[in-house]
Design a protein around this nucleic acid. Structure first.
Lengths: 190, 190
DNA sequence: CCTACCGATCGGTAGG
DNA sequence: CCTACCGATCGGTAGG
């Protein structure tokens, strides 16, 4: 792993723990055992670090949903399952970057912020279309689709928080249980 | 409304829009049409403002769940309904403070941070007990209770975000629809 | 990768 | 509520 990657991963950890604005270049340098000025041999600015962290993880989501979305062989429920799995996998494998994306995107400067928001909107739109098609085909219950989308996404987006406190779950159990609860609700089936 | 209340409400709005760390006392003063130094005639510090905003809204949650929790006449589902309603009401009526509580509690200093986290834990524990009792009585489905609690809370906690973009919903429709989806899931009942 | 250092900005105080 | 101002800290640069 080269130095730049090291810097970015360490930064992701710190940004997650303390927030982008609160982490100083001196904090970051300390964590790496060097002086703040030395960071600038590898990166251009604090902002550049944030951009790389967030855009990289955001692309993961975009590419994955773009891949699943057009597959005609999959039912809406199957697509939803795959989307849930992706959220769980990224929550486990790229926790720090995911936390940064969720909480620090706000501090992206103008052009990157709007490009991030575009990616986010595209993602939500595809997610929404999967739900709507599932409702048309009566695979998914006929509730207000906006509230369904919001409810699912808010759970999926904060999974990383919960996983951090419950690391004993293995990936597969988590996938099964989260999928079950999101699809079936909490009412007793009786 | 006295000046201190004005300062706190304006700060809540700005903290929500830009984040606690990014809002300067000069920003806050500008918004109120005064000079930064004048703020200190009404408040002690920037931190005091944050403490007041967050502790005030946190107490709303604590008091409300403490009131509902011990009522023996209510079933678990009825308690859950009331909790959902509280989240919706506060999301609508105290949006800025709620956003601060969710995103900026992190910047509370030591003793306030731990006191906030205690309140939060108490709240989650009572919420969890309502769910567990509901499962015992078979009012609530027998899934992993931790995942149920997490899934419900993550949706309820981010309701304010969604409401901000969908203000055309009236309170009652929102309560009915959110309750239905959280309790029944998105699977088609067929 | 370091030392030395910069201009800007921050939260907050003194004194009226 | 203001003017004037402070010490500390920030992101970043120069030069080696």
């Amino acid at each position: 792993m080269d130095r730049k990657t090291q810097i970015i991963q360490t930064a992701a950890k710190l940004f997650r723990e303390k927030g982008y604005k609160s982490v100083t270049m001196r904090d970051l340098a300390d964590e790496l055992g060097i002086k703040a000025a030395s960071l600038y041999n590898h990166i251009e600015s604090k902002q550049e670090i944030l951009v790389i962290i967030i855009m990289d993880i955001a692309k993961n989501f975009t590419e994955h949903i773009n891949q699943i979305f057009p597959i005609n062989e999959l039912s809406s429920i199957q697509k939803l399952r795959q989307v849930i799995r992706m959220h769980i996998d990224l929550s486990i494998d790229k926790t720090d970057a995911l936390a940064c994306m969720n909480n620090e995107w706000f501090y992206l400067e103008d052009s990157y912020k709007s490009s991030f928001l575009n990616m986010r909107n595209d993602y939500e739109n595809k997610f929404r279309k999967i739900i709507l098609k599932g409702m048309q085909k009566e695979e998914i219950a006929q509730y207000d689709p906006e509230i369904i989308v919001f409810s699912l996404l808010s759970t999926l987006r904060t999974l990383y928080l919960w996983y951090t406190k419950n690391k004993d779950y293995d990936r597969q159990t988590l996938e099964e249980d989260v999928t079950k609860i999101l699809l079936s609700g909490v009412n007793s089936p009786s």
